[in-house]
Amino acid sequence: MDGPLSSHAADNLSGDYSSAAPPAIPTRPREVRTVKVLHLINGEHYSGAERVQDLLGLRLPEFGYHADFACVKPGKFLTSRQAETSQVFDLAMRHRFDLWRARDAARLIRDEGYEIVHAHTPRTALLAMLAIRGSATKFVYHVHSPTSRDSTRRFKNWVNQKVESMAMTKADRLITVSHSLSRHMRQLKVAAEKVRVVHNGVPPLAEVPSHNTPTDDWTLGCVALFRPRKGMEVLLQALANLRSQGQAVRLRAVGPFETPEYERDILALVDKLKLKDAIEWVGFTQEVNRELFKMDLFVLPSLFGEGLPMVVLEAMAAGVPVIASDVEGVCEAIQPKADGLLAIPGDADDLTKKILAVVSGEIHWSALRQAAIRRQRDSFSDRSMAAGTAAVYDELVR
């Protein structure tokens, strides 16, 4: 087993994780002992699931749990994370079935005294099952998205689903990030008494910059790890539709592409639709809030495979009204025409209409903005997510 990786975290906006959390969630009495939890994660990206993991590392100590991390695919998580008091261990696997690493994981769990192992992907779940075999360590599996619909690669989905099914039989508890995923678990015949819903959450911002209602020029924004299931093609077509109707709209695209091949496909479509001068490609950034503040509308045109997107909650916290596809758990965050809008997945014409309804003033932008800030703060905070996760741990060790 390799030693802990560097604990250095790259600089970020101080506002990104500042919190004005609701006071109703109590911290634990000081006399309660701290329980150590090891989160087994992939770690190559720093997108939605990784932000969940990082925020749990920051917030769980308030509820009596210390979280460390072990990465099986070390990458951006190490340099982007904020939970600096957590250790990050290197358990790099050469491939998804490099099961020799289970011995190293078992040694790490034993030597560091972890009472709970919390896995977040099929790959890490397989490692966790082997590592804790025959021990008293508890096993929690976190379902961030429907594995059977996680990508456009059917064989990969099938393999991951088989591995995940094994994990679900061995796990002491399953955490799903939305009620839609909980229903999906029931369809997979998972015992209902194992499943707990803990909605994702992000820190409410202590201060949201003022933003006047846009008049002529509108900046649409999208933050994602761009890959086929995110539906970027639909957004590009909607952007072209709006511009052909004389609407002064631009797109600010924030995030990396999953593969060079997909990037080439998208840029070819941009050229075909004559949108090159209407889009700014920002790439990966750790300063997500700074980018959100530059947007007037946040658009997430996912086709499938969402649990409860963190970036939707971050946009709401930043006061950027959201128009998102009505897929899986998205509708648990967005209340149509109250704090955002939902569009038909894969339907560029419907997405065009939804964006136009706000741009034209048919739906009041400022009302959406204020309602979104309130809803995120009241229902989807980082502390409420940590409290829900700690309650699941409590069932196993308290």
Rank of each mutant, 00 (worst) to 15 (best):
residue 114 Y to D: 04
residue 72 V to Y: 00
residue 37 V to G: 01
residue 136 A to S: 15
residue 332 E to T: 09
residue 159 V to G: 05
residue 288 V to I: 15
residue 178 S to L: 07
residue 172 D to K: 09
residue 300 L to Y: 00
residue 91 L to P: 06
residue 172 D to C: 09
residue 134 G to D: 02
residue 323 I to R: 05
residue 302 S to F: 06
residue 174 L to K: 06
residue 2 D to T: 02
residue 384 S to D: 05
residue 121 T to P: 00
residue 295 M to F: 10
residue 315 A to I: 15
residue 183 R to I: 00
residue 37 V to Q: 01
residue 396 L to M: 13
residue 25 I to D: 05
residue 89 F to K: 05
residue 60 L to R: 06
residue 36 K to L: 02
residue 332 E to Q: 10
residue 229 R to L: 07
residue 111 D to L: 03
residue 205 L to H: 02
residue 381 S to K: 00
residue 279 I to P: 12
residue 159 V to R: 13
residue 56 L to S: 05
residue 163 V to H: 09
residue 238 A to P: 13
residue 102 A to H: 00
residue 27 T to R: 11
residue 302 S to M: 08
residue 133 R to T: 06
residue 64 G to V: 12
residue 71 C to S: 09
residue 219 T to G: 00
residue 197 V to K: 02
residue 294 K to S: 03
residue 57 G to R: 03
residue 298 F to H: 13
residue 236 L to I: 10
residue 200 N to K: 07
residue 228 P to N: 07
residue 251 L to Q: 05
residue 352 T to S: 10
residue 28 R to D: 07
residue 114 Y to S: 06
residue 116 I to W: 01
residue 73 K to F: 08
residue 51 R to E: 02
residue 28 R to I: 13
residue 89 F to L: 07
residue 215 T to C: 02
residue 176 T to L: 04
residue 106 A to C: 08
residue 152 T to A: 10
residue 313 L to R: 12
residue 30 R to M: 02
residue 166 M to Y: 15
residue 179 H to R: 12
residue 320 V to H: 07
residue 319 G to S: 06
residue 301 P to N: 11
residue 50 E to K: 04
residue 340 G to S: 10
residue 363 I to E: 11
residue 126 L to F: 06
residue 387 A to T: 06
residue 256 P to R: 15
residue 325 S to K: 07
residue 123 R to H: 08
residue 79 T to A: 09
residue 281 W to G: 08
residue 113 G to E: 03
residue 331 C to W: 00
residue 12 N to Y: 11
residue 384 S to I: 12
residue 311 V to K: 04
residue 345 P to I: 05
residue 320 V to D: 03
residue 14 S to T: 14
residue 126 L to Q: 07
residue 65 Y to R: 08
residue 328 E to Q: 15
residue 169 T to I: 00
residue 132 I to D: 01
residue 86 S to M: 05
residue 327 V to G: 01
residue 250 R to Y: 10
residue 83 A to P: 01
residue 104 D to C: 08
residue 266 I to W: 07
residue 29 P to Q: 13
residue 121 T to S: 13
residue 320 V to A: 03
residue 381 S to V: 04
residue 338 A to T: 09
residue 363 I to L: 15
residue 259 T to F: 12
residue 171 A to T: 10
residue 81 R to W: 02
residue 214 P to A: 04
residue 206 A to L: 11
residue 246 G to R: 10
residue 344 I to M: 08
residue 71 C to A: 13
residue 193 E to D: 15
residue 72 V to G: 00
residue 110 R to V: 02
residue 189 K to E: 08
residue 135 S to K: 12
residue 116 I to S: 02
residue 42 N to R: 07
residue 62 E to S: 14
residue 350 D to K: 04
residue 263 E to K: 15
residue 150 D to I: 01
residue 226 F to V: 15
residue 10 A to T: 12
residue 168 M to H: 14
residue 386 A to I: 04
residue 107 R to D: 11
residue 64 G to W: 09
residue 307 G to M: 04
residue 80 S to L: 04
residue 213 T to L: 06
residue 149 R to P: 01
residue 395 E to C: 09
residue 79 T to S: 11
residue 47 S to V: 02
residue 203 P to H: 11
residue 242 L to E: 05
residue 249 V to C: 14
residue 142 H to D: 04
residue 310 M to S: 01
residue 114 Y to R: 05
residue 24 A to L: 10
residue 5 L to I: 10
residue 59 R to C: 08
residue 392 V to D: 02
residue 35 V to F: 07
residue 351 L to E: 01
residue 87 Q to F: 06
residue 15 G to Y: 10
residue 84 E to L: 09
residue 382 D to A: 15
residue 32 V to K: 14
residue 275 L to W: 10
residue 298 F to T: 12
residue 189 K to R: 12
